[in-house]
Computed example of a mutant assay.
Amino acid sequence: MDKPLRKLSGDPSCKNGTCPTLWGTEDNKDYVVQGYVVTDRDRLTQLDLPEGETAVVVPAAVLEEYFRARR
């Protein structure tokens, strides 16, 4: 994925600038979610992720901010 990213929303309680964030590609065809890697084995088992995928936890506020801005 070599398309430029643009920041769509971030964690409003972030103090250091490296917090969960929602990014979009310049052409609006893809999203990239930055969050905390899920390491809990029970949760990973529930997700049954295929090879090459991972799961991240993103605070609800990040997505709420994005959808609120789109209204």
Rank of each mutant, 00 (worst) to 15 (best):
Q46R: 10
K7H: 00
E51F: 03
Y36F: 09
D27V: 10
N28V: 02
C19H: 13
P59G: 02
V56G: 09
Y36V: 11
N16D: 15
K7C: 02
E51D: 08
D30A: 13
G10Y: 03
L49F: 03
M1P: 13
R6I: 13
Y66R: 05
G24T: 06
L22Q: 13
M1V: 12
F67Y: 10
L63I: 15
A55S: 15
T54H: 12
V57E: 13
V57W: 10
N28I: 05
E26H: 07
L63K: 08
T21H: 03
K29V: 03
R43S: 07
A61E: 12
V62T: 10
V57G: 02
Y66I: 01
R68C: 02
T39G: 00
M1T: 14
L63D: 00
M1S: 14
A60V: 06
V57D: 12
K3C: 08
A61V: 07
T25G: 09
N28K: 14
N28L: 10
G52L: 01
W23A: 04
A55W: 05
P4I: 02
R70T: 06
A69K: 13
V62Y: 04
F67E: 01
S9F: 03
T21E: 06
P50T: 12
Q34F: 04
G24S: 08
V37Q: 12
P50C: 04
L5W: 14
L44I: 03
L44V: 06
R41G: 08
Q34W: 07
V32T: 14
P12E: 04
A61M: 03
G35V: 04
